[in-house]
């Protein structure tokens, strides 16, 4: 028996459940809509033209801004942490990594819901601040841009820390010693040796935060409370509420394009192409 045939079940599965669905979406995005909202197999660019209306472009812009902001904040917060973990003793290291993985194993929705409890008007943060007489009335912490941003950073920070840590911990310490022996200052060692060597991990981290951030609809739904409509909310709405699958498909195709562009921009910085999970 030829061993390649062992892949056949997977190949079949991938064609039916990975490739065909995307093909269907791609076709739908060019289909017309009957007066009752049904799909008519007639070529049109209407769905894409609709997306170019200012109201939808604003959603696209907001999604990109939020995703970029949360990715940058995760990077700024996460890189030092990854360095500290990589620099600690082996037993401590394991515990510190575990502490970053553990939240990932508790349900994502429950974690986001916990922030609703913290941020609401009668929530813990407002109560503490009022008890300390720092504020008189409750602050509006929930249902705005910053609450969504906070939720994204909270949920996706481990995705930034773990890949950077895994690259940092594999850096050959003799490189650093060599640089020090040759008279480099601490800052030079970091800027010229450690950081360039950690770039593959940084890129993985950036992608792993940007992707879920740009496509989420749960965080914006729970913490933005309908005030912050993102691409994901738009797709969900078109598929489940407005029942305009053609338009929803067109938005999905735009989202895929957005992600492909991001991947393309970062691909050249990622050596050996190996994307690691953590």
């Amino acid at each position: 028996m030829r061993k390649q045939w062992l892949s056949a079940p997977y190949g079949l599965w991938a064609i039916v459940f990975s490739i065909a669905p995307i093909a269907i979406i791609a076709i739908y995005s060019f289909c017309s809509r009957s007066p009752y909202g049904n799909i008519i197999y007639e070529f049109t660019l209407e769905n894409y033209q609709k997306f170019l209306q200012p109201i939808y472009l604003r959603v696209l812009w907001r999604s990109i801004i939020l995703a970029v902001q949360s990715t940058l904040i995760c990077f700024i917060l996460g890189y030092p942490i990854a360095m500290m973990i990589a620099g600690s003793g082996s037993k401590q290291k394991n515990i510190m990594v575990m502490l970053f993985v553990l939240p990932l194993w508790t349900n994502f929705l429950l974690r986001t819901y916990a922030w609703m409890v913290l941020l609401r008007d009668q929530g813990v943060i407002n109560q503490v601040l009022m008890a300390l007489k720092i504020i008189d009335g409750p602050l509006k912490l929930l249902y705005n841009h910053n609450a969504v941003l906070l939720g994204m950073v909270y949920n996706f920070l481990p995705f930034m820390v773990l890949p950077i840590y895994s690259v940092l911990s594999k850096i050959d310490s003799s490189f650093i010693e060599a640089a020090e022996d040759l008279g480099a200052t601490n800052f030079q060692v970091f800027a010229r040796v450690i950081f360039p060597l950690s770039l593959p991990g940084v890129i993985s981290g950036l992608i792993m935060v940007f992707m879920p951030a740009v496509s989420t609809f749960v965080i914006s739904d729970l913490l933005g409370g309908g005030q912050t409509v993102l691409l994901g909310n738009l797709i969900q709405n078109q598929f489940l509420v407005a029942r305009n699958w053609q338009f929803g498909s067109a938005i999905s195709m735009m989202m895929i394009t957005l992600i492909l562009i991001t991947m393309g921009l970062t691909a050249k910085y990622q050596r050996e192409g190996g994307r690691q999970l953590w």
Binding site: I19, I22, Y28, S249, S252
Partner: peptide, 20 residues
């Protein structure tokens, strides 16, 4: 083909499977 579902956003996997 293997990287397709890994890189495809979850929401697109969800709605495209729904369509299928």
């Amino acid at each position: 083909i293997t990287y397709l579902p890994v890189l495809n956003p979850d929401i697109v996997i969800g709605i495209s499977l729904l369509a299928l």
